[in-house]
């Protein structure tokens, strides 16, 4: 019975993790570029119970083993990279990736991080930076006096200068992709870094042969959290938690009964 108590306890812990994860998803249901995570569980080890007497009877059938599982554990919460809705902003520096891929961002420590949140702004030097001031890589520099900045589907950034008719090119945005984006490491602030699980980045131009998505200017990618789905997950998780707590109660009651035998 102590076994059942701990087994049900592990189930409750697993469901708590699930609710934590759902809470984070729901908290970020309005975060542009946010990608939801989904918790995954595994069953724990199995204990082989030897059944006294089962094999000793001369006429009894050969007893197969009795295995009792010892509960569940949260194994992973992978990132789900489904496309979020597009939200029109008309801001020329708001970009979405239509399809697979990530923007490459230079962090203050020099390392590259990856993001789907394409809310950029030019800084005082004209470099395109994220809301946190981290630069897009390779750098795109737009002079302050530039007018009508256009970013094409293939990532080419062009602008016109006052008094000139011909457009000038500021560079081409490059995207990166991973074999297993679900295995990326979340840094917070919508940034991801590669891990052994995700594999190394493949860099290429948007819409190129690498299978990367194309860029749309003037839109932002909304969070891909489906609030309805999260609520359903929350309800099932809550019910599963309840069921596990019932097991704890049942085990406790059975224990009480045992104690009453010798009253």
């Amino acid at each position: 019975m102590i076994r059942a108590l701990y087994t049900a306890g592990s189930g409750m812990t697993a469901q708590q993790t699930n609710v934590d994860n759902i809470a984070n998803n729901l908290a970020n249901s309005n975060t542009a570029g946010f990608k939801m995570r989904r918790a995954q569980f595994q069953d724990l080890l199995y204990q082989n119970v030897s059944q006294p007497g089962a094999a000793s009877g001369s006429q009894t059938t050969a007893a197969a083993g009795l295995q009792l599982g010892l509960g569940a554990k949260p194994s992973a919460n992978e990132i789900i990279f489904t496309q979020g809705d597009f939200q029109q902003t008309n801001n020329p520096y708001d970009l979405v990736i239509q399809g697979a891929g990530f923007f490459q961002i230079q962090q203050p420590n020099g390392q590259i991080a990856y993001t789907r949140a394409g809310a950029f702004q030019p800084d005082r030097n004209g470099n395109l930076v994220t809301q946190d001031g981290n630069q897009l890589t390779p750098p795109i520099t737009i002079p302050p006096q530039a007018q009508s900045v256009t970013i094409a589907a293939d990532g080419t950034v062009s602008f016109t200068l006052p008094g000139q008719t011909a457009a000038q090119t500021a560079g081409q945005i490059q995207l990166a992709n991973f074999a297993n984006p679900g295995g990326l490491n979340s840094l917070g602030k919508n940034l991801f870094t590669p891990t052994d699980a995700s594999g190394d980045p493949t860099v290429g131009p948007p819409g190129g042969q690498e299978g990367l998505g194309t860029i749309q200017q003037g839109y932002l990618e909304s969070s891909n959290v489906n609030v309805v789905e999260e609520f359903i997950n929350l309800i099932t998780s809550q019910r599963a938690y309840e069921a596990n707590s019932k097991v704890v109660k049942a085990a406790d009651e059975m224990y009480q009964q045992v104690n009453q035998v010798v009253s």
Partner: peptide
Amino acid sequence: SRTETLDALANNIANAGTAGYKAD
């Protein structure tokens, strides 16, 4: 035997959210 049934049941309920889990 009922305590063992409870153990198996506890494991099933604990794994109600485990992908690919098969009930005992």
